[in-house]
Design a protein around this nucleic acid. Structure first.
Lengths: 362, 362
DNA sequence: ATGAAAGCGCTAACAG
DNA sequence: CTGTTAGCGCTTTCAT
């Protein structure tokens, strides 16, 4: 009966049009809800669509309109609750505005980031939100901007890139957190971050390629110097990510050193979690033997004994804000790139105390 | 110079073909990597593509081939770490097999689930993984099956639906966990779940519409009865989800009752988290005043004092398995629907003790 | 091995 | 208000 009757061919506008006895264009107008149609015809078409169980093919629609109703999100590590919540913020805002989200994970590898971007651009997403893994190689991001596809940078600003950015003031937050540690009398401080580096030694800020990581260490060092600590660089520990065992080993090594730090600032909640577990296995007390402050208010930090003081980043809001900026641009807004900095909030809990032995104060 | 020179028109096969001085078809063959092409021509086309910075339009490709290279995933609540990890498992497997993932959240609402499915089908995903929110209304899922689109049910089996399913044995796990509680001597047990119900009273299993929830309560009740407990139904607490305050209030009410439970089995880590916090604010000790077992090995359960004993569900593996089954079907496999049940593992930690006052043993 | 031409399902001018 | 006619960018017969 049908021309091409593969048993489960999805029904198209043409099918509906035929059954409603109108032209394809008219059927498309009511199904797509765009052109002017008489009420009578509209009803006929809708009835036909219902009867046939018509499901619009969004792909075809996107091909014609050039808009996919989808935004692409590339984060560094979904395993990290920080990004998990961010994605929720983005998704919530996106869905409320009628957009879908395609999620990709870079694993903090630029090559994976590039590949993800390629796929997303291939799928013709209407816009992109990216947390760049490496601020050295941003050519692929420049390409996005150049191609006029809306792009929002998340959490990690990149200089000289004309893209909207949503971040927090990492340097300031790290500075303030470190000050709390030095104010309590600590002089042997460490900053532990998940960065993979070869060798795993901190050499200088120029070695750091993730802007948020760099800003935090910068703030940490500045606060240490402000407190008169010499060579605070020696306290920066690049514990590595990825292979979990490696990170744990690095942390245990740090804590078991001859002169271990009396206070640690952890760059994210995953690192802090490892540190907390290490104190347990090494029999160290918090805050008696070690004071600890972590970035990000992860769930677990509020139920440990003692609970952990944290730099609470407004991640969910960062997500919604990023989506907001992106969608505005997708809808045609074209102001100069803006750089939103959301405020962090310090949550005082019970993990900061006095150093075990007060060091000689010069 | 060009016919249509909107300033940033993306480059197409036609553009590449023209520059390489071959036909569109030939260019498409090398760009798409399918037909036979002479090496010489192939090189010319590739050079042209590179020079023009050609990016294939996956939408157009999907339109022609009918495959989108994308799978849709609908979970109940991304906020829940359980689903977060599951999504990671799915994504990892999918990406390794060359598929992308579009994520949707039902918020445990059937209507939202239907809407999400509609969008995903509209986008012509090659297959779907769904954690059905309500086993009463599954018409939309039946439609998916009927339309021959590969579908895998996640965590929540549905009878009489010919779809692959990946789940754990919830009834058995709840039974075993409850037994540990009764074996320790507990007689006043509670099972707390995030279900919203009006009224919030447990009436009977028939009231439960999420298969995993139902199975767990069934197991809980069976174990209670096996231990000679009468009317164990009275211990089932439907604490509600969504509005966080409501859940917390329900839990504090339960714990402050005249004869509060001496042991609780929590249906998920979010509920257990609230319970743990409630014990802190009410000044109850674990396991002295209350024994607690939770489903799902959430991060925080291992760092509390004491750490919480849990039913460790192999969520990541469930995710990869689901993706595996789905992709096999997408690639043409057509065996009868299989129902995979992955084993749970009990992790003994420190949250189960003897009941404070031993009850009269009849 | 290559080219010409016909779609995929929808939207978008442009006529009537 | 409705129908006709082109495409969107790619794949896919079918010739050559």
């Amino acid at each position: 009966m049908d021309k091409k009757s593969s048993p489960f061919r999805p029904v198209t506008v043409a099918d509906v049009a035929r059954r409603a006895e109108v032209s394809k264009a008219t059927a498309a107008r009511v199904l797509g809800g765009y052109g002017p149609v008489s009420d009578e015809v509209k009803l006929r078409v809708q009835a036909a669509a219902k009867a046939l169980d018509y499901r619009p093919n969004e792909l075809a629609r996107s091909m014609s309109t050039g808009k996919s109703g989808t935004i692409g999100v590339v984060v560094g590590d979904i395993e990290n609750a920080f990004f998990g919540i961010a994605v929720r913020g983005i998704s919530d805002k996106a869905h409320r505005s009628g957009f879908n989200v395609i999620l990709a994970n870079s694993g903090e590898e630029v090559e994976a980031e590039k590949a993800a971007l390629k796929v997303l651009v291939g799928k013709r997403v209407d816009g992109l939100i990216v947390a760049p893994a490496d601020n050295r190689s941003v050519g692929h991001l420049r390409d996005i901007v150049r191609s006029r596809r809306p792009l929002v940078l998340f959490d990690r600003p990149i200089e000289d890139l004309a893209a909207d950015t949503v971040a927090t003031d990492d340097r300031e937050a790290a500075f303030a957190a470190t000050q709390r540690l030095t104010a309590a009398g600590h002089r042997r401080l460490a900053y532990v971050t998940a960065l993979n580096a070869e060798p795993p030694l901190f050499i200088g800020l120029d070695q750091l390629y993730t802007s948020s990581v760099k800003a935090r260490i910068d703030g940490f060092l500045a606060a240490c110097r402000a407190a008169g600590i010499v060579e605070p660089e020696r306290g920066v520990c690049l514990a590595g990510g990825g292979a979990e065992g490696r990170q744990r080993a690095a942390i245990e090594r740090l804590l078991s050193a001859a002169e271990p730090p009396t206070a640690i600032l952890a760059s994210d909640s995953l690192v802090a979690f490892e540190i907390f577990k290490a104190t347990q296995t090494l029999g160290l007390g918090i805050p008696a033997d070690l004071s600890l402050i972590s970035f990000y208010d992860a769930e677990w930090t509020s139920v440990t004994t003692p609970p952990i003081s944290v730099v609470d980043q407004p991640v969910y809001d960062m997500g919604t804000r990023a989506a907001e900026l992106l969608i505005a641009r997708i809808n045609g807004a074209a102001p100069p790139a803006r750089h939103d900095v959301l405020p962090n909030r310090f949550i005082e809990r019970g993990s900061v105390g006095l150093p075990r032995r007060l060091p000689a104060t010069a």
